[in-house]
Amino acid sequence: MSILPKPTLLNVVIVSPALAAANNGNWQTAQRYARLLRAFCRVRIVQRWDGSESDDVMIALHARRSYESIAQWHVRHGTRGLIVVLTGTDLYRDIQSDPQAQQSLRWAHTLVVLQSEGVQAVPESFQAKTVVAFQSTTTRQTLRKTPRYLRAIMVGHLRPEKSPRTFFQAARQLASHGDIQLQHVGGEHDPELAQLAHQTAAECPNYVFLGARSHEATRRLIQRAHVLVHPSVMEGGAHVVMEAICSGVPVVASRIPGNEGMLGHDYAGFFPTEDAAALAEVLLRLRRDASFYAQLMAQCALRAPLFAPAREQERLITIVQQSFLS
């Protein structure tokens, strides 16, 4: 890793549609960006830009939801210093049809995607100004796991994009397998899905719905699990995937571009999107086949260096400097 020169001290404003109370991916990204940039910049996080004349660079999370701040910045500064970070709903939904999200793409100096497949989802005319910046997390000790059962954890709020129904259905298919335990962490954002979660917990003794937990508590739960299950139908680059990998916990994930960009095309732990039977089969194989579990562990270990904080910090500083100077 090269040693970064001390850049000109810039004032950076991070616009995040979600703040600390939401405890979601946008907030985790905003908080981490601020921490990584503060060694080189003055940084603040806002939900909506206040028009401060002292700001040199804006990092806007979400092309559609941060549109008003992006538009206000463009009126004052044009494209200079305007960085737009594209989320999963941006990449795989909003920029296809939403006029405001599309306008944000035009105005941005730099577009940032969070995994290697993200560039291909950006319209071709904007790919030249699109860069990949893998997110990062701290490494945690790999804990020894009991051989008496397989504990699989899903971390995802109850939202359709996270496909919790796939996890509920897999729990029902595995109900007769007492040696496979399923835990679920997530806030009750959708009332219908919340009802299904509680119903599944009442009817399937192998499924436990833990509800919303703090980020630290969630990381400890991931660390103690044998495997993370990530069944989303739409992701820009999930925090929980890298947090599992950097805790020595392998991942079983839906085969969508956002997960392939995090785990690699040849990863052996994918299952077809929204296919609960296939997910159940993968978990059964992990329980029965130690060599398969070891394969996923080894593949995840090879991806771990992508999520190193120093790597993300260097990438972010370069992006910030270039957006302001060019």
Rank of each mutant, 00 (worst) to 15 (best):
V113S: 06
D98E: 09
Q100T: 11
A108S: 06
G118I: 11
E117F: 09
Q115T: 11
D94A: 06
I95V: 10
P99M: 01
G88F: 00
I95F: 00
W107T: 01
L111W: 09
P99H: 02
H109I: 03
Y92R: 12
Q115A: 12
Q102T: 02
P99Y: 01
Q96Y: 14
H109L: 03
Q102V: 02
A108R: 03
V112E: 05
S104Y: 07
Y92K: 04
R106A: 14
Q102S: 02
G88H: 00
V112S: 08
L111H: 09
L114Q: 14
L105Q: 10
Q96M: 13
Q96S: 15
T89P: 00
V119H: 12
Q115S: 10
Q103S: 14
V119D: 10
L111M: 05
G118S: 10
W107I: 01
R106V: 15
G118C: 10
D94W: 12
D98V: 00
S104Q: 06
P99N: 03
T89E: 07
E117A: 11
S97D: 12
D94V: 07
H109C: 13
W107A: 01
L111T: 09
Q100L: 13
T110H: 12
Q115D: 09
E117K: 14
D90M: 04
L111Q: 09
V112A: 11
T89W: 01
P99K: 00
L114D: 04
Q102E: 03
S116E: 15
Q115C: 11
E117D: 15
D90I: 02
H109P: 05
S97M: 10
L111E: 09
Q96C: 12
R93E: 15
Q102L: 10
L114C: 04
I95H: 00
H109A: 14
S97R: 14
T110N: 12
L111D: 10
D98L: 00
A101K: 03
S97T: 14
V113R: 04
L91G: 12
Q103H: 10
V119N: 11
Q96T: 13
G118F: 03
W107C: 02
V112M: 08
Q96N: 15
D98A: 00
Y92S: 09
